Computed example of a mutant assay.
Amino acid sequence: MSVFDLSSRTVLVTGATSGIGFETARQLAVRGATVLLHGRTTDDAQAAAGRLAATDGVDADQLHALDADFTHLEEVEALARRVVVQHPRLDVLVNNAATAAPERHTLTDDGNEITFQVNFLAHYLLTCLLEPALTTAPGGRVVNVSSSLHRTASIQWSDPHRARRYSRLAAYAQSQLALTVFAADPRVTAVSVHPGICTTGLLPLYALDGSPAAAGAAHVVRLCDPAVEIVNGAYYDRAQRVDPAPAATEDRNVRRLNKLAGQLVGHRG
């Protein structure tokens, strides 16, 4: 994959302290981008920025550490406020942060199933709140790091928190389908990408061999390049644009998901 210059771009990467998120941040920084590194805690984010600053060709001034625990929606709001004030022009938001679904059904303090909140609702809220920054200049875009597992999923509209019937794999897949559907929201140009099965913290859930995180990150970074033309709602399996699950392309599902997500985040967006 050719190296392209991103020195004029400012990119926020959620979940940038490990795995694909860290590698995405590293590859963006090497290409000259200003990178906002999100971590769950201040220490995590600052440690990731420190590791990146030691990379050849990366200037510490390019890196900005930000923290928010996505299991608390008020922290997502605070993150968005900081970004809008400090970086009123944001070129790309990479919605990457994700958690493996726990063995047992778990709710956050906000009352949402934890996987649905961390993997989707927090990103929904963050994207909505960052819309002014993303649309300040032409070319702003969102890249949702999804999974091919969205094809196995269904959104339980009457029970999105899966209180009646919980399966960790089904909960994770539902969160990925929601993230993929959300890419078709018309407010901000967005795409979804399955980066391949990579060796990250999520891998043990599926007991599969994975590619290096850097390989998956390269597919995410490519979509951050303004020279790569994208169509709102498009879905990529690594470098190839393909059709997502049929449910991800239905206008009714986009509207229904926006209504549900707005209710669950308290209309903060």
Rank of each mutant, 00 (worst) to 15 (best):
M1W: 10
M1D: 10
V3M: 13
V3K: 09
D5N: 15
D5I: 06
D5M: 07
L6K: 06
S7D: 14
S7N: 14
S8D: 12
R9V: 07
T10Y: 08
V11Q: 00
V11P: 00
L12E: 00
L12R: 04
V13A: 01
G15L: 03
A16I: 03
A16V: 03
A16E: 05
T17H: 07
S18W: 02
S18T: 09
G19P: 04
G19T: 03
G19N: 06
I20L: 12
I20A: 07
I20N: 04
I20D: 01
I20V: 12
G21S: 05
F22H: 09
F22S: 00
E23K: 10
A25V: 04
A25I: 02
Q27W: 07
Q27V: 08
L28N: 05
A29N: 02
A29G: 05
A33G: 08
A33Q: 09
T34S: 14
T34E: 13
V35P: 00
V35K: 02
V35H: 02
L36A: 05
L36W: 06
L37K: 01
H38G: 03
H38D: 07
H38L: 07
T41R: 12
T41P: 08
T42I: 07
D43K: 12
D44H: 15
A45V: 01
Q46G: 01
A47S: 12
A48V: 04
A48W: 07
A48R: 02
A49Q: 11
G50C: 05
G50I: 07
R51W: 05
R51C: 10
L52Y: 04
L52I: 00
L52S: 02
A53K: 06
A53E: 03
A54K: 14
A54F: 08
T55E: 15
D56Y: 11
D56Q: 14
V58T: 03
D59A: 15
D59E: 15
A60I: 08
D61C: 06
D61P: 00
Q62I: 01
L63V: 02
L63Y: 02
H64D: 06
H64K: 07
H64L: 07
L66C: 08
L66S: 10
D67N: 15
A68E: 00
A68Y: 09
D69E: 13
F70P: 01
F70M: 05
T71R: 15
T71Q: 12
T71M: 09
T71L: 12
H72G: 04
H72D: 12
H72V: 10
L73C: 10
L73I: 09
L73A: 08
E74M: 09
E75D: 14
E75T: 10
E75A: 13
E75Q: 15
V76F: 09
